[in-house]
């Protein structure tokens, strides 16, 4: 899932203070799981903004709302007219949601209420950990299921650097060395010999380095178009 974390209220206040009618708009999937931007958190942020506004003597209307997902039109379309009545939408969805909604709110600006951090998992209640970098060319079958792109601070592909200290990364004793984990895991799996092969320089064009990415699944698009045409024809006969 996409993991996010709340922005400091001071930063949020500086974003919203000059608007009269603000909607704090939550997203109830990924960012709700990580307690950053679900409807519940949107409600809290709205309350904090109202409190700040009253302290600063500003006249503001601040409401909150939440939908299941900001990244699919079907979820926010039922409320989009309501959303457009505000001067500002403070979206507490991830960056995807903020961008996606921005394209669809006409003249109403959409500001980010949280910081989108990474693709991660729930390691323990309240602990989230980055595990994938979305590089577009997965190689973890060669590294014991552990991703060196996301989990090695240097994205090393051929083994650890000299900075591994007691299984931890040189950047912090709180960060596991990905290559320490890879070697440990592959030893357990009996596949360590796979690591003897040199992985050549990667083609990073599948990652963000290749420019913004888009995947278009033609068979799905064709199917949807046919279905839409059928509905139209059926409607015409009626």
């Amino acid at each position: 899932m996409i993991v996010g974390s709340q922005k400091p209220i001071e930063e949020i206040w500086n974003m919203v203070k000059d608007f009269k009618k603000v909607l704090v708009f939550g997203c109830n999937t990924c960012v709700a799981i990580c307690h950053a931007g679900g409807e519940k958190e949107a409600e809290t942020i709205a309350a904090l903004i109202r409190m700040k506004a009253s302290q600063e003597g500003k006249q503001m209307t601040v409401n909150h709302l939440g939908v299941m997902r900001h990244c699919e039109p079907e979820y926010f379309e039922p409320v989009i007219d309501e959303v457009k009545k505000y001067d500002l939408v403070l979206s507490t969805a991830c960056g995807v949601g903020v961008n996606f909604l921005s394209d669809r709110t006409g003249t109403v600006p959409v500001y980010p209420g949280i910081n989108t951090s990474f693709y991660g998992a729930v390691e323990a209640p309240g602990v989230f950990k980055e595990l994938c970098a979305g590089c577009g060319d997965c190689i973890v079958h060669m590294t014991g299921g552990i991703c060196p792109v996301a989990r090695c601070a240097k994205t090393l592909m051929n083994g650890p650097c000299g900075g591994t200290n007691k299984g931890k990364c040189e950047i912090s004793k709180d960060v596991d060395c990905a290559w320490y984990l890879i070697v440990e895991r592959m030893t357990k799996l009996g596949t360590l010999d796979k690591l003897s092969a040199i992985i050549p320089p990667r083609n990073w064009s599948t990652a963000r380095d290749g420019g913004p990415r888009r995947i278009s699944m033609e068979h799905i698009r064709e199917f949807e178009e046919k279905e839409a045409a059928k509905t139209e024809t059926a409607g015409g006969k009626r």
């Binding site: 051929n158 083994g159 650890p160 299984g167 070697v183 440990e184 003897s196």
Partner: peptide, 23 residues
């Protein structure tokens, strides 16, 4: 190239060296 023979994961360090040499 450099080599840290006695860093973790210590059993992998010879392979690490081998890869640099093979490269």
């Amino acid at each position: 190239a450099s080599w840290t023979p006695m860093a973790d994961p210590i059993d992998f360090r010879p392979i690490n060296l081998m890869k640099k040499v093979n490269a």
